[in-house]
Design a binder for these strands. Sequence first.
DNA 1: TTGTATGCGTTATCAG
DNA 2: CTGATAACGCATACAA
Lengths: 343, 343
Amino acid sequence: MPQRRVTIKQVAAEAGVSITTVSHVLNDVPGKRVHPDTRKRVKMAATRLGYVPNGLAQSLRTQRSNTIGLVGDEIATTPFAGKLILGAQDVALSRDAIVFVVSTGYQRDVENREIEELLRRQVDGILYASMYHRTVELPPQLASVPTVLINASCTTPNVPWVVPDEVAGGEDAADVLLAAGHRRLAFINDVDEIPAAFGREEGFRRRAAKAGLRADDLQVVTAETDPAGGYAAARRLLEDTTRPTAIFCFNDRLAMGVYRAATELGLRIPEDLSIVGFDNQEFVADGIFPGLTTIELPHYDMGVWATEQLFDRIDAASQGTGPAPTARLRGPVIHRDSVAPPS
Amino acid sequence: MPQRRVTIKQVAAEAGVSITTVSHVLNDVPGKRVHPDTRKRVKMAATRLGYVPNGLAQSLRTQRSNTIGLVGDEIATTPFAGKLILGAQDVALSRDAIVFVVSTGYQRDVENREIEELLRRQVDGILYASMYHRTVELPPQLASVPTVLINASCTTPNVPWVVPDEVAGGEDAADVLLAAGHRRLAFINDVDEIPAAFGREEGFRRRAAKAGLRADDLQVVTAETDPAGGYAAARRLLEDTTRPTAIFCFNDRLAMGVYRAATELGLRIPEDLSIVGFDNQEFVADGIFPGLTTIELPHYDMGVWATEQLFDRIDAASQGTGPAPTARLRGPVIHRDSVAPPS
DNA sequence: TTGTATGCGTTATCAG
DNA sequence: CTGATAACGCATACAA
């Protein structure tokens, strides 16, 4: 605790009024009318003394901490966490709240411990975030406090969640390629059976079909979502006699491997092969050559949406809360230089 | 605030004792001996009711919030922030504390606002972190609360700080190359005049000199620290008649450009050109081909060191605090496949 | 060994 | 318009 801070009592003394009055003017209590002169006196005294209200005492009294918790599964290894946190923080700050950030490392026991610690500090609500889109089971302790999920859905009724619109992402990727004139496409999907894999494939296929592509004009293969996986898959795809003229990659890391495969095979990007990625991991998408056209994941926006929802539910906690809203947010496509008409 | 929580008073009623006794047993107060039976009764009552102490009330009473703030300049755009936060969180949690994370976006006004918000909530101390090694001027408001700097130094007396050991990093990079047998080296340094640039160059030069390299066996050039900058610098370096057989890059992003330049010039890595990076940005160092040997920045460790220092100072706040310790932490070299003996 | 009473810094209720 | 005073939930000096 910082060294002895100045309290409302001292301000009252300095201004020659009661603490009640100080509280009134400093909080601008609606019904209370206080003489302009005393009001000014109080304010001056407060600034002169450098008064800062003790938030702990306020919270104890008002039963509201203006504090929320953000529990994430991993915060260190992905670049997404930062944007998500920032989104949450930006709206929190706009409501004079701040956010506790904790990372569980996928360990149930530390998760429990951390949630306990948050609850104990009377957080007004909790953001429960996943670093990759999935469905989760909500820790039971969260039942007692307003909660909203980020980048994850769950079956627990009445808890709001927000996830990326994977289908739209797949559609957008297809559109970019189709618009450039490609008619022989491939999609290197994640081997894992996760929402992102299903959704993106669905959207991609849908658009391809709509554009009149025949079944064998669209190959879908799976791979590990790292450069090695992308490389292997791309080698297979590109050595084929009727190779695709464009590849949509499940993510940017995988796309790095595709770049390498293309280079080794003497295929120029984008002249001989167009590529679209997913994630917009800045340092990779922007760092490889040529720059990778990709679909961005709306992490910041999800953070914002979720936090707004959270505050809505906190504020509405007194009244009955309605059914939980959910959202699928579309990420923008980031155009760089990896897409061109087929030659 | 979560719905009406159970208080110590209810536990007392349930157990048929006074709140004092409850407090005593739940906190294991040293001097107080309480009958084993009542002790058991109280504990049972507590768990039966699902009692969780109200941290706000505790803090108000004990004048200690078990809460620290981490203010960083940018949390969203760099992958380093996560590790730093994690380091801080890990030690905080081991002391039953949790951490508020705020990001300022380099804007003084939001920084002030956020610090105010932290102080108002009575954080026990503040971690002030920079995302790149630099010297900062400490916001004056932080004078009133224990503070330690991460990845930054300052001239304010008596505030501890921790930064990467840049000189050691430069030395390590040189050692890796020298050990592989290289005798014609280049260092593409940051154009910006920052501690990292000075330190790494100093270390690199020192080792080179020690190994007996002549002045013109070691070229040092500067560039923007992105792929484009690295590319341009490398082109110049490598088109020279007496090109270096190994290049040390100020960071991994820049190294990406060097990779491209080498590829364009038909130089194989590592056979024709060895490369060492800096930062160990996972997705790039591990994603490019061949994997980049690089020096890791000790973000997690800095987070840990700083947080431990912070708690030390918080605990010692009652007594006089000694002079502020400072540290330069060495990051490990991560060996991958971009270094080989010169051919 | 256990209980009573006070205060941590605020807000809010009620009289003046 | 202003001021006592009682909570908020807990820890603790002191009394029993």
